[in-house]
């Protein structure tokens, strides 16, 4: 017993203070990109050619689709004029797919749920997770939110074991053909009103797998999506911000 208490003392209090205080991110963290089309050399396509997911496009001024971006920053490395840079912004989530297409350096708009849904889910949001072809990284960083460091329980958010207990789905992966039916069945098993959250580049756009014939290009191809959380995988802070934004807590 005394040993358990001593260990408890040794390990200390570890829950971070977000959203009151933003936890430190590593200095090499790659977050919200900023684009400056005016700095582009005419006809240059270096960034688009370096992108593994065709997220960067140079037709009609440089633009970047955060929903396909893996934040590898190969485009920024390939750019001869630093017209494209990755900043440290972690607030990347959006309610509309089109809002993820960025051309400048304005933040991604992300409105909270309508008042009726916010009153239902604002203080208690139960989620069922469906991995539909995810590589395990998005899943790992969703899991991390339940550890004592992030403790999403303090916001009333919890991952539950049955779709019948859930208010929403959090989907990862590009939706493989072999998971298509299971995803649909899980969605149907949720009581209404229900939310769908697409977490990670795969779930938003197919990500690195968008050209594979064994997948369907993300959750939006099968079910209506209420929140998109970009990243490959998104940092836990990005995921938590998206969830809290959705229910109007930040």
């Amino acid at each position: 017993m005394i040993k358990t208490l001593l260990a408890r003392l040794h390990q200390g209090y570890r829950t971070n203070a977000y959203p009151k205080k933003i936890p430190a991110l590593p200095d090499r963290f790659r977050g919200m990109p900023s684009l400056d089309a005016a700095a582009c050399e005419a006809g240059c396509t270096c960034c688009a050619g370096a992108c593994p997911t065709s997220a960067v496009s140079t037709g009609g001024g440089v633009s970047l689709d955060l929903g396909a971006c893996t934040f590898c920053a190969e485009c920024a490395a390939a750019c001869p004029t630093q017209a494209l840079r990755f900043g440290r912004g972690f607030e990347l989530s959006a309610r509309n797919r089109n809002d993820l297409l960025t051309t400048g350096n304005s933040p991604v708009p992300c409105a909270p749920l309508e008042p009726r849904l916010r009153s239902l889910f604002g203080r208690s949001l139960k989620l069922r997770q469906v991995s539909a072809g995810g590589c395990g990284a998005c899943e790992a960083d969703i899991n991390v939110l339940s550890t004592i460091v992030w403790d999403i329980g303090r916001f009333g958010i919890q991952v539950v074991a049955s779709p019948r207990h859930a208010d929403g789905l959090i989907v990862t992966g590009p939706v493989t053909e072999n998971m298509r039916v299971a995803l649909k069945k899980t969605y149907d098993a949720l009581p209404s009103p229900k939310l769908v959250i697409a977490c990670g580049a795969c779930a938003i756009s197919g990500g690195l797998y968008r050209t594979s014939t064994h997948q369907h290009g993300g959750a939006g191809s099968q079910v209506p999506v209420d929140l998109y959380i970009p990243g490959c995988p998104p940092h836990p802070l990005t995921i938590l911000h998206g969830l809290l934004r959705l229910i109007g807590r930040v």
């Binding site: 072809g133 992966g173 493989t176 072999n178 998971m179 797998y209 050209t211 594979s212 064994h214």
Partner: peptide, 15 residues
């Protein structure tokens, strides 16, 4: 298993 099959080997050989 097989639910997560997304065609990695084929994709790598052709990418």
């Amino acid at each position: 298993l097989g639910y997560q099959h997304r065609g990695v080997e084929r994709l790598v050989a052709g990418a």
